[in-house]
């Protein structure tokens, strides 16, 4: 059963793509609050194993690691099936893993478009389908999707990425309506340029354009994004549902 107070301690949070970047910061913030972690990462990673071991000892929590390649539907199906078999509860789901993809329209192949949708959208839907069934039985849960300002604001050459994030935004809004009767809240966070390796993949031009549009200049620290996620996962935000929270310095 879910705690009814505002404490997150003792809950279980499933986080995808938490071996680096924003996801890793979210993991750390949850761990410090005594939240048990279900980490879903692409492949075995010894550095991550050591990091998890340290978090477990420091914070007296459990961390369960699963592997899934979000580009492969079968791999995600297997992960959901293994999760069911583990009988772990899931109180919080953070659909964080994602890839950036760029290219002007004539240079965007259908395969590229399908791949970015497979990772940034279809797999998130597939995971949510499985996890929401666990939450429906628990009669409580919180789902937080990692969207992007790129899903709302237009940037040349970001059609495929932006469309996949726009899809996750619509998904967030629809699910917030569909799952509310089971006491499951669904929200999304939409960061602007955040200080992870993704900024390098986006390139200098995109960085400059984003900075030009931002009122507060500079890269967003991963901690700022993680803290919003923490707030949305807690009972302090119990009436926030179906929202897309921009972390963008004022664009």
């Amino acid at each position: 059963m879910c705690n009814s107070d505002s404490s997150l301690t003792g809950k279980y949070a499933l986080i995808t793509g938490c071996n680096r970047g924003i996801g890793k910061s979210i993991l750390q913030h949850f761990a410090e609050k005594g939240v048990n972690i279900i980490a879903c990462i692409r492949k075995k990673n010894e550095e991550f194993d050591v990091f998890c071991q340290k978090q477990m000892e420091l914070n007296q929590i459990s961390i369960h690691i699963f592997y899934a390649d979000l580009l492969e539907e079968e791999s995600v199906r297997q992960f959901v099936s293994d999760l069911y078999k583990s009988k772990l509860p899931v109180h919080i789901l953070i659909n964080n893993a994602g890839v950036v993809s760029k290219g002007l329209l004539p240079m965007t192949s259908m395969q590229q478009l399908k791949d970015v949708f497979q990772i940034n959208f279809f797999s998130q839907v597939q995971i949510t389908q499985g996890v929401s069934k666990i939450m429906m039985r628990q009669k409580c849960g919180v789902i937080i999707n990692m969207a992007s300002i790129g899903g709302m604001d237009a940037f040349p050459a970001y059609m495929s990425y932006g469309c996949s994030k726009a899809a996750i935004i619509y998904f967030t809004k629809t699910m917030s309506q569909e799952l509310a009767s089971y006491h499951i809240r669904v929200n999304a966070v939409a960061p602007s340029m955040t200080d992870t390796s993704m900024k390098e993949e986006m390139g200098e031009l995109a960085n400059m354009e984003i900075q030009r549009r931002c009122a507060i200049k500079g890269l967003i620290p991963v901690n700022d994004v993680a803290k919003i996620v923490l707030f949305l996962a807690s009972d302090d935000s119990s009436f926030i549902n179906g929202q897309i929270i921009r972390v963008d310095g004022g664009m």
Partner: peptide, 18 residues
């Protein structure tokens, strides 16, 4: 239908495909 599926999954310890 969702309630039925949840009941069946619990009763038989299975996870039904979409």
């Amino acid at each position: 239908h969702m309630t039925l599926v949840a009941n069946l999954e619990d009763a038989f310890d299975i996870m039904m495909e979409t």
